[in-house]
Amino acid sequence: MQAPFTSHHTVSKRVLGLFAIGIALTATVAVLGVILGMLADFAVKGGPELTWSFLTEYPRNSNMEGGIFPALAGTTFLVLLMTLMGVPIGTATAIYLTEFARQDSWFARSVRFAVNTLAGVPSIVFGLFGVGFFVQFVGKGLDTASGSSVFGDGSLLWCAATLAVLTLPVVIVAVEEALRAVPRELREASLALGATRWQTITKVVLPNAVSGILTGSILAVGRGAGEVAAILFVGVTYSAESLPDAVTEKFMHLGYHLYVLATQSPDVEATLPLQYATTIVLLGLTFLLNFSAIYLRSRLRRR
C-alpha cells in the first residue's frame, strides 16, 4: 500500500527505502538459501546410499558398513516410551491451566513460569538431570530397595524419562492451545444440563481436543527424536548386538549414531556416505512428524 502523495520524497529517500526493503529481503533469502542448501547437500550426497537394506540391516564391521536398523528401532522405542510418560502429564497440566486455574492466581502463574523456564533449559542440563536424578537417585534407590542391579545404570527407560521431561513444555503448550479452541458455549451447555465439571471435561472438552493432544504428542516426538545431548550419558550406546529386550537395557539411537560416526569413528571420511544417509533418515523422521503436526494444527485452527 503506497501513500497517495509521494512527491515530497526525495530521490535519496527512495534509495534509502529500496535499501531498507532490500536488506530485509536479502536476509530472508539468505536464511532460506541456507535451509535449501542444507537440504540439497544432504539429498545429493546421501540419497544414493539410502536403500531399503540400509534401513533394515544391522551395521557391520564396527559400524563402518551396513545399515542402521537398530538405531532406527531404538529411536522409535525411545519416543514411544517418552510419549507414554510425558503426554499424560502434559495433558493434565494443560487441563489444569485452562479448566481449573484462575488466570491471575499465583499458582497458575508459577506453573506457567515453570513451563516457560523448562522450555529454555539447555538440553545438556536435562542430560545431567537424567544422570543425577533418574539414574543415580531413582535408579540406584530402586536397586537398593529391591536388592538387584537393574535400574541403577543408564537405560532406555531413563532416556525416555529424561526426554519426557524435556518435551513436557511442548506438549503443554500444544494441548493448551487445543483446549482453548474448544468453544465456551460447549462447556456452558454441558454445565447447564447438569453435568459436573469433571464430566464436562472428560465427556465434552477432551473429546473435542483430541486432535490437539495428538498434535502435542507428535510435536514432542519430533523434538525428542532428534535430541542427542540430553541422552548422551543416560543410556545410549554406540553398538548393540540386538534390539533391547527390556526397557532397562541400553539402546542405539539415530542422532547419537550420526554423532559418533561423524566425530569418533576410526575413518570418518570412509563413512561419510553413511553419515549423510543417516542424516536424511533422521531429518526425514522429524520432518514427517512436524508436518503431520502442522497439518493437524491447521485443521484444528480452521474449525
Binding site: 497440566t93 489444569y96 523448562l118 542440563v125 538431570f129 536424578f133
Partner: peptide
C-alpha cells in the same frame, strides 16, 4: 471420585514447578 481426580490434576500441574527445583537440586547435588 471426582474431587480426587480434580486434586490429582492440580498435583500433576505442580509437577513443572517441582521439576525446576529437582533439576537444580540434583544437578547441584552432584
Amino acid at each position: 471420585f471426582e474431587p480426587v481426580a480434580e486434586w490429582s490434576i492440580r498435583l500433576i500441574a505442580s509437577f513443572s514447578i517441582i521439576l525446576i527445583f529437582l533439576i537444580f537440586l540434583f544437578v547441584f547435588r552432584e
